[in-house]
Protein backbone atom coordinates (compact mmCIF):
# COMPACT_ATOMS: atom_id res chain seq x y z
CA UNK A 1 0.00 0.00 0.00
CA UNK A 2 1.05 3.51 -0.60
CA UNK A 3 2.75 5.07 2.38
CA UNK A 4 4.87 8.12 2.68
CA UNK A 5 7.37 9.70 4.99
CA UNK A 6 6.30 12.53 7.27
CA UNK A 7 5.96 15.67 5.21
CA UNK A 8 8.15 18.04 7.12
CA UNK A 9 8.77 20.26 4.10
CA UNK A 10 5.03 20.46 3.63
CA UNK A 11 4.55 21.50 7.25
CA UNK A 12 7.23 24.12 6.84
CA UNK A 13 5.46 25.27 3.73
CA UNK A 14 2.22 25.61 5.64
CA UNK A 15 3.99 27.53 8.35
CA UNK A 16 5.39 29.92 5.77
CA UNK A 17 2.00 30.31 4.21
CA UNK A 18 0.50 31.07 7.60
CA UNK A 19 3.12 33.71 8.25
CA UNK A 20 2.42 35.19 4.87
CA UNK A 21 -1.29 35.34 5.38
CA UNK A 22 -0.85 36.89 8.80
CA UNK A 23 1.26 39.56 7.19
CA UNK A 24 -1.42 40.16 4.63
CA UNK A 25 -4.33 40.13 7.01
CA UNK A 26 -2.63 42.46 9.45
CA UNK A 27 -3.19 45.29 7.02
CA UNK A 28 -6.51 44.25 5.55
CA UNK A 29 -9.55 45.76 7.22
CA UNK A 30 -12.34 43.22 7.23
CA UNK A 31 -15.94 44.10 6.97
CA UNK A 32 -15.62 47.39 5.19
CA UNK A 33 -14.38 46.41 1.80
CA UNK A 34 -15.45 48.80 -0.95
CA UNK A 35 -18.15 46.62 -2.45
CA UNK A 36 -18.79 48.86 -5.43
CA UNK A 37 -19.59 46.26 -8.02
CA UNK A 38 -21.20 43.94 -5.50
CA UNK A 39 -23.65 46.51 -4.27
CA UNK A 40 -24.45 47.70 -7.75
CA UNK A 41 -25.29 44.16 -8.77
CA UNK A 42 -27.38 43.54 -5.66
CA UNK A 43 -29.39 46.56 -6.64
CA UNK A 44 -30.13 45.72 -10.22
CA UNK A 45 -29.69 41.96 -10.61
CA UNK A 46 -33.22 40.80 -10.00
CA UNK A 47 -34.61 43.48 -12.21
CA UNK A 48 -32.14 42.99 -15.03
CA UNK A 49 -31.90 39.22 -15.17
CA UNK A 50 -35.07 38.04 -13.53
CA UNK A 51 -33.23 35.52 -11.34
CA UNK A 52 -34.25 35.32 -7.72
CA UNK A 53 -30.84 33.90 -6.82
CA UNK A 54 -28.39 36.74 -7.24
CA UNK A 55 -25.48 34.31 -7.29
CA UNK A 56 -26.93 32.60 -10.31
CA UNK A 57 -27.44 35.92 -12.04
CA UNK A 58 -23.82 36.81 -11.43
CA UNK A 59 -22.57 33.43 -12.56
CA UNK A 60 -24.62 33.12 -15.69
CA UNK A 61 -25.54 36.62 -16.72
CA UNK A 62 -23.01 39.19 -15.55
CA UNK A 63 -20.16 36.73 -15.62
CA UNK A 64 -21.45 34.16 -18.03
CA UNK A 65 -18.18 34.13 -19.90
CA UNK A 66 -16.31 33.19 -16.75
CA UNK A 67 -18.66 30.30 -16.28
CA UNK A 68 -18.13 29.18 -19.83
CA UNK A 69 -14.41 29.34 -19.11
CA UNK A 70 -14.84 27.25 -15.98
CA UNK A 71 -16.87 24.72 -17.89
CA UNK A 72 -14.06 24.54 -20.39
CA UNK A 73 -11.54 24.14 -17.58
CA UNK A 74 -13.41 21.14 -16.30
CA UNK A 75 -13.61 19.76 -19.80
CA UNK A 76 -9.90 20.34 -20.36
CA UNK A 77 -9.05 18.69 -17.07
CA UNK A 78 -11.16 15.65 -17.89
CA UNK A 79 -9.68 15.47 -21.39
CA UNK A 80 -6.17 15.82 -20.03
CA UNK A 81 -6.79 13.11 -17.49
CA UNK A 82 -8.16 10.88 -20.21
CA UNK A 83 -5.12 11.62 -22.33
CA UNK A 84 -2.75 10.69 -19.55
CA UNK A 85 -4.67 7.62 -18.44
CA UNK A 86 -5.33 6.35 -21.90
CA UNK A 87 -1.71 6.26 -22.90
CA UNK A 88 0.49 3.37 -21.93
CA UNK A 89 3.91 4.78 -21.22
CA UNK A 90 6.50 3.71 -23.71
CA UNK A 91 9.22 3.51 -21.14
CA UNK A 92 7.64 0.77 -19.08
CA UNK A 93 8.06 -2.96 -19.17
CA UNK A 94 5.96 -3.00 -22.27
CA UNK A 95 3.02 -5.22 -21.51
CA UNK A 96 -0.17 -3.59 -20.43
CA UNK A 97 -0.24 -3.57 -16.70
CA UNK A 98 -3.23 -5.61 -15.67
CA UNK A 99 -5.23 -4.10 -12.91
CA UNK A 100 -5.04 -6.13 -9.80
CA UNK A 101 -8.47 -6.03 -8.33
CA UNK A 102 -7.94 -6.62 -4.67
CA UNK A 103 -11.21 -5.34 -3.30
CA UNK A 104 -13.83 -7.73 -2.15
CA UNK A 105 -17.08 -7.71 -4.14
CA UNK A 106 -19.75 -5.31 -2.96
CA UNK A 107 -22.12 -6.79 -0.45
CA UNK A 108 -25.87 -7.00 -0.47
CA UNK A 109 -26.39 -3.81 1.52
CA UNK A 110 -24.24 -1.76 -0.74
CA UNK A 111 -25.89 -3.10 -3.85
CA UNK A 112 -29.42 -2.51 -2.57
CA UNK A 113 -28.45 0.87 -1.15
CA UNK A 114 -27.09 1.87 -4.52
CA UNK A 115 -30.25 0.78 -6.27
CA UNK A 116 -32.31 2.84 -3.87
CA UNK A 117 -30.09 5.90 -4.03
CA UNK A 118 -30.03 6.12 -7.79
CA UNK A 119 -33.48 7.67 -8.37
CA UNK A 120 -33.18 9.96 -5.38
CA UNK A 121 -29.83 11.28 -6.50
CA UNK A 122 -31.18 11.73 -9.99
CA UNK A 123 -34.12 13.76 -8.79
CA UNK A 124 -32.02 15.77 -6.37
CA UNK A 125 -29.56 16.59 -9.15
CA UNK A 126 -32.32 17.64 -11.49
CA UNK A 127 -33.88 19.78 -8.81
CA UNK A 128 -30.64 21.52 -7.92
CA UNK A 129 -29.95 22.22 -11.55
CA UNK A 130 -33.38 23.44 -12.51
CA UNK A 131 -33.92 25.62 -9.49
CA UNK A 132 -30.50 27.18 -9.76
CA UNK A 133 -31.89 30.57 -10.60
CA UNK A 134 -34.29 30.51 -7.66
CA UNK A 135 -32.50 28.81 -4.81
CA UNK A 136 -28.90 28.00 -4.01
CA UNK A 137 -27.54 25.48 -6.40
CA UNK A 138 -27.06 25.34 -10.09
CA UNK A 139 -25.42 23.44 -12.86
CA UNK A 140 -22.08 22.62 -11.28
CA UNK A 141 -23.48 21.37 -8.01
CA UNK A 142 -26.34 19.54 -9.61
CA UNK A 143 -24.00 18.08 -12.22
CA UNK A 144 -21.80 16.70 -9.50
CA UNK A 145 -24.83 15.08 -7.89
CA UNK A 146 -25.91 13.60 -11.21
CA UNK A 147 -22.44 12.19 -11.72
CA UNK A 148 -22.63 10.60 -8.30
CA UNK A 149 -26.01 9.16 -9.20
CA UNK A 150 -24.51 7.34 -12.14
CA UNK A 151 -21.31 6.38 -10.40
CA UNK A 152 -22.78 4.78 -7.29
CA UNK A 153 -24.33 1.83 -9.19
CA UNK A 154 -20.98 1.28 -10.87
CA UNK A 155 -19.36 1.12 -7.47
CA UNK A 156 -21.84 -1.47 -6.34
CA UNK A 157 -21.77 -3.53 -9.52
CA UNK A 158 -18.62 -2.96 -11.55
CA UNK A 159 -20.10 -5.00 -14.35
CA UNK A 160 -23.27 -2.96 -14.67
CA UNK A 161 -23.48 -1.23 -18.03
CA UNK A 162 -22.78 2.45 -18.46
CA UNK A 163 -23.41 3.74 -21.91
CA UNK A 164 -20.32 5.80 -22.58
CA UNK A 165 -21.48 6.65 -26.06
CA UNK A 166 -24.61 8.31 -24.80
CA UNK A 167 -22.61 10.09 -22.14
CA UNK A 168 -20.30 11.46 -24.83
CA UNK A 169 -23.24 12.66 -26.85
CA UNK A 170 -24.88 14.31 -23.90
CA UNK A 171 -21.66 15.91 -22.87
CA UNK A 172 -20.86 17.26 -26.32
CA UNK A 173 -24.33 18.53 -27.03
CA UNK A 174 -24.70 20.13 -23.61
CA UNK A 175 -21.40 21.93 -23.92
CA UNK A 176 -22.20 23.02 -27.44
CA UNK A 177 -25.61 24.28 -26.44
CA UNK A 178 -24.06 26.63 -23.88
CA UNK A 179 -21.93 28.18 -26.62
CA UNK A 180 -24.84 28.15 -29.03
CA UNK A 181 -27.07 29.97 -26.56
CA UNK A 182 -24.31 32.54 -26.33
CA UNK A 183 -24.09 32.85 -30.07
CA UNK A 184 -27.86 33.06 -30.30
CA UNK A 185 -27.64 36.02 -27.96
CA UNK A 186 -25.09 37.51 -30.25
CA UNK A 187 -27.33 37.03 -33.24
CA UNK A 188 -30.50 38.11 -31.50
CA UNK A 189 -29.59 40.91 -29.12
CA UNK A 190 -26.17 41.77 -30.44
CA UNK A 191 -24.28 40.62 -27.35
CA UNK A 192 -22.70 37.29 -26.70
CA UNK A 193 -24.63 35.43 -23.97
CA UNK A 194 -27.29 38.14 -23.96
CA UNK A 195 -30.41 37.03 -22.03
CA UNK A 196 -33.01 35.50 -24.29
CA UNK A 197 -36.66 34.74 -23.69
CA UNK A 198 -37.33 37.74 -21.43
CA UNK A 199 -36.92 37.93 -17.67
CA UNK A 200 -40.36 36.67 -16.70
CA UNK A 201 -41.58 37.28 -13.19
CA UNK A 202 -38.99 36.90 -10.48
CA UNK A 203 -39.39 33.74 -8.44
CA UNK A 204 -41.19 31.62 -11.03
CA UNK A 205 -39.65 28.44 -12.32
CA UNK A 206 -39.94 29.64 -15.89
CA UNK A 207 -38.21 32.95 -15.51
CA UNK A 208 -34.82 34.60 -15.70
CA UNK A 209 -34.40 34.36 -19.44
CA UNK A 210 -31.84 31.85 -20.61
CA UNK A 211 -30.33 31.25 -17.18
CA UNK A 212 -32.23 27.97 -16.56
CA UNK A 213 -31.24 26.75 -20.00
CA UNK A 214 -27.63 27.48 -19.29
CA UNK A 215 -27.92 25.75 -15.91
CA UNK A 216 -29.30 22.72 -17.64
CA UNK A 217 -26.50 22.70 -20.16
CA UNK A 218 -23.92 23.00 -17.44
CA UNK A 219 -25.54 20.36 -15.30
CA UNK A 220 -25.73 17.83 -18.12
CA UNK A 221 -22.22 18.51 -19.25
CA UNK A 222 -20.68 18.37 -15.80
CA UNK A 223 -22.68 15.33 -14.87
CA UNK A 224 -21.86 13.27 -17.92
CA UNK A 225 -18.25 14.39 -17.90
CA UNK A 226 -17.57 13.58 -14.27
CA UNK A 227 -19.47 10.32 -14.42
CA UNK A 228 -17.42 9.30 -17.45
CA UNK A 229 -14.21 10.30 -15.76
CA UNK A 230 -14.97 8.48 -12.54
CA UNK A 231 -16.06 5.36 -14.32
CA UNK A 232 -12.98 5.46 -16.49
CA UNK A 233 -10.82 5.80 -13.41
CA UNK A 234 -12.61 3.03 -11.64
CA UNK A 235 -12.86 0.60 -14.48
CA UNK A 236 -10.09 -1.30 -16.21
CA UNK A 237 -7.50 0.67 -18.12
CA UNK A 238 -8.24 1.38 -21.73
CA UNK A 239 -5.83 -0.14 -24.15
Amino acid sequence: MLTSRPRWPALLFILGLALLLTALLRDLHFGNAPMQVGQAINGVAAHETGAANVVASVLLAYRGLDTLGELAILFAAATGAGLVLGIAFRNGNGEAQAKTNTEPPAGFILRKGADLMFPFLLILGAYVILHGHLTPGGGFQGGAILAAAFFVPQLARPSSPFNERTAHWVEALAGASFVLIGIAGLAGAGWFLAPLLGTGSVGELLSAGSIPLLQLAIGLKVGSELAGLMIALHGPKET
Partner: peptide, 11 residues
Protein backbone atom coordinates in the same frame (compact mmCIF):
# COMPACT_ATOMS: atom_id res chain seq x y z
CA UNK B 1 10.18 26.13 -2.34
CA UNK B 2 11.38 28.77 -4.80
CA UNK B 3 7.87 29.97 -5.27
CA UNK B 4 7.14 30.19 -1.60
CA UNK B 5 10.44 31.89 -0.87
CA UNK B 6 9.83 34.33 -3.67
CA UNK B 7 6.38 35.13 -2.40
CA UNK B 8 7.67 35.57 1.12
CA UNK B 9 10.49 37.78 -0.09
CA UNK B 10 8.14 39.85 -2.21
CA UNK B 11 5.75 40.30 0.69
Amino acid sequence: AYLLLAVLAAL
